[in-house]
Design a protein around this nucleic acid. Structure first.
Lengths: 225, 225
DNA sequence: CTTGACACAGAACATGGGTTCGGTCTATAA
DNA sequence: TTATAGACCGAACCCATGTTCTGTGTCAAG
């Protein structure tokens, strides 16, 4: 399904690649024609469709610049080589979390304008499904989260949200106790059961209206060095 | 030069970002308007120009989908991107670790020939100093590592080594007990003190010649999804 | 030689999509 | 009060751009 490409088709592919690199958006049919020295738009169109056949290109019909390069078959890279940059997410490290204090949440400028210093890189594969731009991270201080299997110095990555599904690990602020904690969340009638990650620990029960969900925990990261 | 963005402008930025992510090319003014719930194309145009003023966006006049996100705040631009890429390491996930079994170590082909499926991406910043090519990762099964603050399903990243400095967290195999465990290592005369990460747990003492160091723990990763 | 697939040219067509302009509404300054 | 600026709406304008159609020349199979 992948015969040799004609010279023109190769030039087209190369041009599209470099054009996107330079402009941030794909070229039009006419721009391609000019670059590859094809007089007629229909011929460019013809060759683009060929490239789609070969699985090297994706097109969105009736959409201007509706081109997308399909990641050609990647001959497996050298082991321990760098991975794709697209799989790396930068998460702002907005503060610290401890049992005695509320969770510091990112401000209005969520997702923009944060210092480079307070950003951690996380592979997207570690985060699963999440909403882009609503991630933040906290450094745990103290040993108060031991029942959540979280140690002093750990970093937790959260997605900002105020509600949770049963079974999700969330950061909650208990208004009555004035206390922050990480627990698995289970709504049971008017009460909420907060279950520690450590299976040897007992759950606690609190009224639902005293549970203030700060975010869902996506990952816990611990580095030893 | 960079006042607070309006809600609309933030939504526009986010939408452009995710649209490009999804389609490979930027959205049109009308697509933005639909997504951000703006009725008039002129208003979208108006806000886009605002974002250009703020230096968050670049536009190509008279060009359909002529949008480009400007890397928000980047004093140093290209270097940062390059550095980011270089900071991602692929670590082979060579097996599982449990208290009852020895640590599965990578075979002779260390660093070469491992399946793509069993590789995890880790930012180099999480690993600190390590020797390239001698990293491996293990998935923890069971709750036997609770005293090390490591839960069922966690992934630990190790560097292969047979000796350790005092205070380092290591994976050790205790020949007499036939048991694998994660502890902080302290050589004290002829004995070794193995200290759990959990400060509430007591250390154990074993003869030095019965402690078989499998590797040094560089990181512990927990994903919840 | 005839046929038909293939690559191409040129032009017409229709819609996609950026731009412009007059007008409304609100808030703050004069 | 009026005035001015910012944010917004709606509609028109018109070039940009994907699509389609007719037609050419080539080449290998029949």
């Amino acid at each position: 399904m992948q015969p040799k490409l004609s010279t023109r088709q190769k030039r087209i592919l190369k041009f599209i690649e470099s054009f996107i690199e330079e402009h941030g958006y794909p070229p039009t049919i006419r721009e391609i024609g000019e670059a590859v020295d094809i007089a007629s738009t229909s011929v460019v169109n013809y060759n683009l469709n060929k490239l789609v056949e070969y699985g090297l290109l994706a097109r969105s019909p009736e959409v201007s610049r509706g081109l997308r390069l399909v990641s050609a078959d990647q001959p497996k890279e050298v082991p321990l080589k760098v991975a794709d940059v697209a799989h790396l997410v930068q998460v702002p490290l907005v503060g610290k979390i401890a049992a005695s204090a509320p969770v510091p949440l990112p401000g209005e400028d969520f997702g923009y304008y944060f210092d480079d210093d307070d950003v951690i890189d996380v592979p997207q594969s570690m985060l699963g499904k999440h909403r882009q731009g609503e991630l933040f991270a906290l450094r745990v201080t103290g040993d108060s989260m031991i029942d959540a299997m979280v140690a002093d110095g750990d970093i937790i990555v959260l997605q900002r949200q105020n509600v949770a599904q049963n079974g999700e690990m969330v950061a909650v602020y208990l208004t009555e106790r004035g206390e922050t904690t990480l627990k698995k969340y289970y709504l049971e009638g008017k009460q909420v059961r907060l279950q520690p990650a450590n299976p040897m620990m007992d759950p606690i029960y609190v009224d639902a209206d005293q549970v203030n969900i700060q975010g869902r925990v996506l990952a816990v990261l611990r580095t030893l060095h």
